[in-house]
């Protein structure tokens, strides 16, 4: 084989690769690289959508970090959600996954029932939960009241709004359940049998056989959960808006976070700055904070779960 034909072949194969990759290459440039660079640029300008953007240095950054009242609460809420909501989802998902692998009768039916809520469209599911947890007339408080238990304000009480959102997230735990189920079924049977011969209790078998085998999946669930929390938008926004009652009729503007900024998340802050206050520059500052956080955890994901991309290399 001459060098000439080898080079031609190489060029052909490079062209072929480029052709196959082209939709994504264009998409990457137009819908990722360009807007990301623009976001950085806008974050240093004053821009309200009417008059052309004007360079303003670090003004927006100072405003967001020092004077904008919604930024820090949003970050604190995100931290709360990462700690509590992600943990609850992972623990509950694992629990349901364990349960479903042990159910012998009607496993298919149970699996479908457990999975269904995950499919409920977020707006619909959130509306449903706001109704179910309606403090005055909702079925949940009706039942709690009958049982003589306390009846919290749920989505209308700053102390209970995040737990209510957590309940909603746990309800839709079907995705994690399926992932854990698959992982649990992959644990080699022999290891359990060996442990049983050694006289291990059920808890010990879980602790020393199951957990080590599925720990990468738990890690995966935790990190993707954190990234999802960074993006958490529809449920808290709709829940806050519907529960606040500030909608229509009065024409009052709904500021996300009801009650008392307790349901604010960073994406909602971007919305508030960009599409309610129309301070595009400051919105871009928060967008960049969001970007840095999301990328940090993505990197963690790629490191920790290198299996995610290594296969087939």
């Amino acid at each position: 084989m001459t060098t000439y034909t080898l080079r031609a072949k190489r060029r052909r194969s490079a062209l072929r690769t480029a052709a196959f990759m082209s939709p994504w290459l264009i998409g990457f440039c137009v819908f990722f690289a360009y807007p990301l660079i623009s976001t950085v640029y806008f974050s240093f300008t004053s821009y309200d959508g009417f008059t052309a953007p004007e360079f303003s240095g670090l003004k927006n950054w100072a405003f967001v970090f020092n004077d904008y009242p919604l930024f820090w609460p949003a970050l604190r809420n995100t931290l709360w959600l990462v700690v509590v909501m992600v943990t609850c989802r992972v623990v509950f998902g694992l629990g349901v996954g364990l349960l479903i692998t042990r159910i012998k009768t009607g496993a298919g039916v149970f699996r479908t029932l457990f999975y269904l809520p995950y499919l409920a469209p977020p707006v619909a599911a959130t509306l449903g939960f706001v109704f179910l947890l309606n403090p005055g007339t909702g079925p949940v408080n009706s039942i709690l009241g009958e049982l003589g238990l306390p009846t919290p304000g749920w989505f209308t009480d700053a102390a209970w709004s995040k737990p209510a959102l957590t309940a909603l997230a746990v309800w839709g735990v079907g995705d994690l359940m399926v992932i854990f189920m698959a992982a649990l079924l992959d644990v080699p049977k022999e290891q359990y049998e060996a442990a049983e011969l050694d006289g291990a209790t059920a808890f010990q078998r879980f602790r020393f056989v199951t957990l080590p085998n599925i720990s990468p999946i738990i890690m995966f669930a935790v990190v993707t959960g954190i990234i999802q929390t960074m993006q958490y938008y529809t449920q808290p926004f709709v829940a806050g808006k519907v529960a606040s009652g500030v909608m229509g009729g009065s024409g009052q503007q709904f500021e996300p976070g009801y009650p008392d900024k307790s349901t604010l998340t960073l994406p909602q802050v971007v919305y508030n700055l960009g599409f309610q206050r129309f301070d595009y520059g400051s919105a871009c500052v928060v967008a960049l904070v969001l970007f840095v956080l999301a990328m940090a955890f993505t990197t963690l994901l790629m490191r920790r779960r290198s299996g995610l991309i290594q296969a087939g290399e």
Partner: peptide, 29 residues
């Protein structure tokens, strides 16, 4: 396919996958 930049491309795909849509919404809008 085996090509140079394949690993990088894959990393970028995963990054885009994890990117909250709000990050680029202002310029896109």
């Amino acid at each position: 396919f085996r090509f140079r930049g394949r690993h990088l491309s894959l990393m970028l795909v995963i990054s885009m996958m994890m990117l909250p849509p709000q990050v680029v919404v202002i310029p896109m809008y």
